[in-house]
Design a protein around this nucleic acid. Structure first.
Length: 370
RNA sequence: GGGUUCGUAGCCUAGCCUGGUAGGGCGAUGGUCUCCAAAACCAUCGAUCGUCGGUUCAAAUCCGAUCGGGCCCA
């Protein structure tokens, strides 16, 4: 694969992603300055993930906001495929969903697709994906969601609730649609072929419009959902997409939960975090200290800097100083890494405490089948 | 149920026809070099060749059975 090629699908992300090209390819809308301003004025806050383009693309987010202004409520939906333990990249859309929920005071559904990971990962058993679903749920809850307005859907547990909706969806999607959208072939197991209708189901769990914050790689599922929404008498789901979080080891793919090395898990200890960052984080520094002082580093490709930008340093002034110091050569890669290590460990300390408490709270969050 | 095809280290794979206990790539690990990482260079680990049995002095290689995956047909 040459350097200007990239692949983005719900199951595989590879290459150096050109997000403008991806917008064109997927047919989404870039988040315009006007939309940014609208969100800002409605929430009275300028969220750093929007300002910095971590969320960069959408489908009909403006419609959701306009309806909301007219007094029409919406709800939020996001999720996670439990193929492994939660890593810090997963938290991006969840934290953003929390923010949206707080600002608009709306319900949120969080879907754990344990069945889908069982179908798509040959080496995972259903027991394992169910176990990871539970583990992932703890991380989600730890972010502080309100149990009154937030429900966790586990596919294998909530199938009774999801199935009637999924059936409506499934009848309107044919094999050619899914083949074209996901690249399925005759070897694809039939669980995968049906699966997208289950991922669609939460879009219609309430009779209101839905807004879905999610990683852009999951967009294809909802492209199909949007295509069939009107056929089943529902509104199209609206989406807001975040970029893929780079792996520690460098650009050229998203952080993968199955690759131990390039991943910081939410359960990692401070020592492990330190070791992983120092040992694996791809840097934009120069080959040696003299050249670095003279030529400066490149924060745009430096993974440590990117993590600060994407998640761990919401303060623009501090981030700007780091950017400039690194670029000028004043800040060394090792020093930049030290800043990130401290930020991550500070975050994980409280996260891990909340995660422990979540074990007592999980029951309140699980959706009950009706 | 029938047919067909595949099963070699974490992954991809050579070898199988023409039997003599396995070679490569990626990855991983360690080192050199770096403020780190990457790159580069050096080194190392790692496979009883799905399983059981047969033929043979000798089988990943031939034969049989069996298990598992894929596809086609019913």
């Amino acid at each position: 694969m040459s350097s200007d090629e990239f692949i983005v699908t719900p199951w595989h992300v590879e290459g150096d992603i050109d997000y403008d090209k991806l917008i064109e390819k997927f047919g989404t809308q870039k988040i315009s300055p006007e939309l940014l301003e609208k969100i800002r004025s409605m929430t009275n806050e300028d969220h750093f993930m929007l300002r910095r383009g971590i969320f960069f693309s959408h489908r009909e987010m403006n419609r959701i906001l306009e309806d909301y202004e007219k007094g029409n409520d919406f709800f939020l939906y996001t999720g996670r495929g439990p193929s492994g333990h939660t890593h810090i990249g997963h938290l991006v859309p969840w934290v953003f969903a929390k923010w949206l929920q707080d600002k608009f005071n709306v319900n949120l559904y969080f879907q754990l697709t344990d069945d889908e990971k069982f179908y798509s990962k040959t080496n995972l058993t259903l027991e394992e994906t169910k176990k990871f679903a539970y583990e992932n749920a703890l991380d989600f809850i730890a972010l502080g969601f309100n149990p009154e307005k937030t429900k966790i859907i586990i596919n294998t547990k909530n199938i009774q609730t999801l199935y009637p909706i999924a059936a409506q969806v499934a009848k309107k999607i044919n094999f050619s649609n899914t083949k074209a959208t996901f690249g399925f072939t005759n070897e694809t197991n039939i669980g995968m072929i049906f699966y997208t209708s289950l991922q669609s189901a939460p879009c219609f769990i309430e009779d209101k419009p839905v807004l879905i914050p999610l990683g852009v790689d999951q967009d294809p599922h909802f492209r199909l959902t949007r295509d069939i929404a009107q056929k089943i008498g529902k509104q199209k789901p609206a989406l807001i997409h975040n970029i893929m979080i780079p792996a520690l080891t460098g650009p050229g793919g998203k952080m993968s939960a199955s690759e131990e090395k390039g991943t910081i898990y939410t359960t990692d200890t401070p020592d492990v975090v330190k070791k992983k960052i120092n040992k694996y984080a791809f840097s934009g520094g120069q080959p040696d200290i003299e050249q670095h002082r003279k030529l400066g580093g490149n924060p745009d490709i430096d993974v440590s800097y990117q993590y600060l930008r994407i998640f761990f340093e919401p303060d623009d002034n501090k981030l700007k100083k780091i950017y400039e110091d690194y670029k000028s050569g004043k800040l060394l890669s090792g020093e930049l890494k030290a800043i990130l290590i401290e930020k991550i460990n500070e975050f994980l300390k409280t996260h891990q405490e909340k995660r422990e408490k979540a074990k007592q709270q999980i029951e309140q969050f699980l959706l009950e089948n009706k």
